[in-house]
């Protein structure tokens, strides 16, 4: 293996660019957290490593574009994946001025999320930093560390809610973007059920703002 280059230090993993069998890969190494109880730490680190690999494989089976899993190193708590060249959706939105293009891309995101949820994959950390627009202009979902396989309408609605909040906090005055995502998401009856639940989740959000 060649020299590794650190490309991102996230909250709980270091992401390196590396080469495996002549292929450019990213190595996502989870590290242990001193603040966490050792038992909890081990449970989370192992669980998330496994779940990320599992969800990535499942997405691929459903035709969702995600980085391909190259190797899973349980002892090194490292997941090796295909390296995706491109901009994050966050960077793309900030750099883009074309509203029609923007709308088109948001519908694509909505459609992808719909396929993902129809297959009971819940991402768990949808943000505009966790989507990459690759060189062929395809949307690639990454960062499945908090994902789970769940048929629950509630989990899917919360998944969308987390994305909505990411849009609001990261991209001020971007309501139209998330609306376009939801519009293309909600075409089936099952998706409509999730959207109705999303309303409830939002309401809960307002109500929970109670005493100081």
């Amino acid at each position: 293996m060649s020299v590794q280059e650190l490309i991102k230090q996230g909250a709980e993993a270091r992401v390196y660019k590396s080469v495996v069998d002549g292929k450019l890969v990213v190595a996502k190494q989870r590290f242990s957290k001193a603040y966490r109880h050792p038992e909890l730490d081990q449970k989370l680190t192992r669980g998330r490593l496994n779940q990320e690999a599992r969800s990535l494989r499942r997405c691929k089976e459903c035709g969702i574009r995600v980085p391909e899993v190259v190797r899973q190193d349980k002892y090194g708590a490292t997941l090796y994946m295909e390296y995706i060249e491109g901009l994050t959706l966050k960077e793309w939105i900030i750099g883009n001025g074309d509203e029609a293009k923007e709308k088109e891309l948001m519908s694509t995101v909505g459609k992808i999320l719909h396929i993902m949820h129809s297959n009971n994959i819940v991402h768990g950390d949808l943000t505009t930093s966790n989507m990459i627009i690759d060189e062929s202009n395809e949307v690639v979902l990454i960062d499945f560390g908090l994902s789970q396989i769940s048929p629950s309408v509630e989990d899917k609605a919360v998944d969308l809610y987390v994305l909505e909040r990411a849009f609001i906090s990261t991209h001020p005055n971007s309501e139209r973007l998330f609306s376009a995502v939801l519009e293309s998401y909600g075409t089936s009856a099952a998706a409509q059920t999730v959207l109705r639940r999303l309303e409830d989740v939002r309401q809960r959000g307002r109500k929970r703002d109670m005493t100081g």
């Binding site: 109880h37 909890l40 449970k43 943000t127 919360v158 987390v162 909040r165 990411a166």
Partner: peptide, 13 residues
């Protein structure tokens, strides 16, 4: 003694 409890984090929520 640490007793395992549900751990629920969704993104930043």
């Amino acid at each position: 003694k640490f007793i395992e409890l549900p751990y629920t984090v969704k993104g930043m929520d």
